[in-house]
Write a protein that binds this DNA or RNA. Structure first.
Lengths: 174, 174
DNA sequence: ATGTATGTTTAGTAATTACTAAACAAAATA
DNA sequence: TATTTTGTTTAGTAATTACTAAACATACAT
């Protein structure tokens, strides 16, 4: 039973939807990316609506999120007032972009708030056993976050995390 | 205005809750971990209930998830039929554990399904431009997932991703 | 100006997820 | 055997999130 390209595409898009949901993103997001990723040419919003079965509104908002993450790009054609969207195909670029996005996010605010705990304790120091214990634990967590942060920043700095870099990392970790 | 240890702890736990939510986990999960992380001794379920304000049921189910991820450990005392829970303090161990967990997860099933697309196309090959284009794109995605997978497996293999390893990685990426 | 093609915002609904309260199970103690 | 102490499961509720339908805004075309 020969599979049509249409069916193959649908399955692929379906798979990306599930992956998207797994990572905590709306499944529509994965679907939109999937449709764009399999298209040889940039697509206008209307066509994305057609192919995903979502509404204009949903596609409009979710594609904006995708663009913010650097996973899709918006372009225009001269003499055509539609916007056209295409998928980023350099996934390493996308990862970098996502990591960068994360820097100013709600997450960072929360991390920083946890870390403020240390300052507060410094300023109100009490020298008993429990106090010391808590301080030590919070500091350990801070150290961990800092290590992660260093790695993230290093990755951001790379222009390309191509195979050569991945290979290098694997070599070091061996 | 001197801050009590109790207040400091509450703020810290609150912060971890937000971080937890940011990563797509229930905020109660972060709270439970936070309480355990700041406790010098393992705590029984009842006390976690008290300190987080959640119900027994919620703590019971969420702590099981935390244990599955390797973020908390369950222990018992001889002659005491309570279970006691403590936080994993080696975060690198936790990361390893989470990555491992992920191997058999829904995520992997989805990734594999996407990759099956390639096999299906091989078996039903049609030699036209669009077919080739789609095939190429799907393959590029597979390559990316494979690279990620290699990295994940390398990390899992390390007994300790301590500073030495992080430093090494940073060196390579410079 | 009026109408048409686009994209965005908004207000409400559907679906999902986190959680509660309470029944239940199992095991130890009386 | 009945009672108490623990943890789990379940059924329902609250809160959140993803999405729809439709109003709106803008720019272009007539």
């Amino acid at each position: 039973m020969p599979q049509t390209l249409a069916k193959i595409k649908r399955d692929f898009v379906e798979g990306l939807s599930q992956i998207s949901r797994f990572w905590g993103f709306p499944k529509g997001m994965g679907a939109i990316f999937g449709v764009l990723y399999l298209s040889p040419t940039p697509l206008p919003l209307d066509q994305i609506v057609q192919e995903t079965g979502l509404t204009k509104g949903a596609v409009s908002t979710e594609i904006r999120a995708l663009a913010r993450m650097g996973l899709v790009h918006r372009s225009t054609k001269l003499g055509d007032r539609k916007d056209y969207y295409s998928a980023e195909t350099d996934f390493y670029a996308a990862i970098r972009s996502i990591l960068q996005e994360r820097q100013n996010s709600e997450f960072d605010r929360a991390v920083r708030s946890v870390m403020d705990t240390l300052t507060t304790m410094d300023e109100n120091w009490v020298d008993n056993e429990e106090w010391n214990f808590v301080y030590q634990r919070v500091q350990a967590l801070q150290d961990f976050f800092n290590a992660i942060d260093s790695l993230a920043k290093a990755v951001i700095r790379l222009e390309s995390l191509g195979f050569s870099n991945v290979t290098k990392i694997l070599g070091v970790l061996k």
